[in-house]
């Protein structure tokens, strides 16, 4: 009886200790689990983190320097930049690219962006008008410029193509009289704004919750920590059952004793 009592007490004691120890982590596990189950509804996959501490913790930092082009020579002209495959209109992310930026010009109210195998047209407010695949029309685009107020491209096979008024059709032309688009350096302030914009689109809330749930946010040993929590939960379930069963048996014994021995 004493041995049985002591065993039950030990189980209860460890049930309490482990329960207290795993308390915070179990709450994290449960809340993140519920949120991840409804990731799309809660827009976790579309919410970006802009907290600099968390971004630094994750090391979200673009490599190299941005390549930027002014749309026109005016002082407040919009700037089109590419920084590690991210294309920006001023500080607004337009899309991610798998091709190099070859130049930017303005033709009437359209902004023309030349990539290796595509031409992107934007409105003067930076909205995408059309993306035209050029891979079946020309060789790789090398440069973009202006000739007689029309965009002109130079391809890697040294051919020159001039666009029509609506930038729908391209015709061969000669290299004379072309003003080529040239990249520009950003001021430190502009660079900082672009960096903030880049980092702002580098980390989704869903990623943080996944890492919290798996423990990877705490580093290499974080996943072992969460394994420990899972084992603790197993222990809590078993020891809880054991304590409950022992108490039930004790109450039955007590009832039996009262009924037959009093």
């Amino acid at each position: 009886m004493t041995r049985h009592k002591s065993r039950k007490f030990t189980a209860f004691l460890w049930h309490r200790r482990i329960g207290l120890l795993a308390f915070i982590l179990v709450i994290i596990l449960a809340i993140t689990g519920i949120m991840l189950n409804h990731s799309h509804t809660l827009k976790l996959d579309r919410t970006y983190i802009d907290n600099s501490f968390i971004l630094n913790w994750y090391g979200i930092q673009p490599e190299g320097e941005p390549t930027s082009y002014r749309v026109n020579p005016l002082p407040h002209s919009p700037v089109i930049s590419v920084w590690q495959s991210h294309l920006f209109y001023n500080h607004t992310l337009l899309s991610t690219l798998e091709q190099k930026l070859r130049g930017v010009v303005q033709s009437d109210s359209l902004i023309v962006i030349a990539l290796d195998h595509a031409i992107m047209l934007l409105s003067d407010k930076g909205e995408l008008v059309e993306r035209i695949d050029t891979s079946s029309s020309f060789n790789q685009v090398q440069r973009l410029g202006m000739k007689h107020n029309h965009p002109v491209i130079k391809t890697t096979d040294q051919q020159y193509y001039l666009a029509d008024d609506e930038i729908l059709n391209w015709h061969k032309t000669t290299p004379e009289g072309i003003t080529w688009s040239t990249s520009t350096a950003l001021s430190p302030q502009q660079r900082e704004q672009l960096l903030t914009a880049y980092r702002g689109h580098g980390l989704k809330l869903e990623r943080i919750l996944l890492d919290l749930h798996s423990g990877r946010i705490f580093g290499h040993y974080g996943s072992y920590l969460m394994d420990g929590v899972a084992l603790a939960l197993l222990w809590l379930a078993s020891s809880g059952l054991w304590v409950w069963h022992s108490r039930r048996r004790k109450i039955r014994h007590k009832k039996h004793y009262i009924k037959h021995h009093r």
């Binding site: 995408l128 008008v129 059309e130 993306r131 729908l168």
Partner: peptide, 12 residues
């Protein structure tokens, strides 16, 4: 028809 927004204002 596409069941998602169409990005762009012009189609060739």
């Amino acid at each position: 028809i596409l069941q998602h927004p169409y990005h762009g204002f012009r189609i060739h």
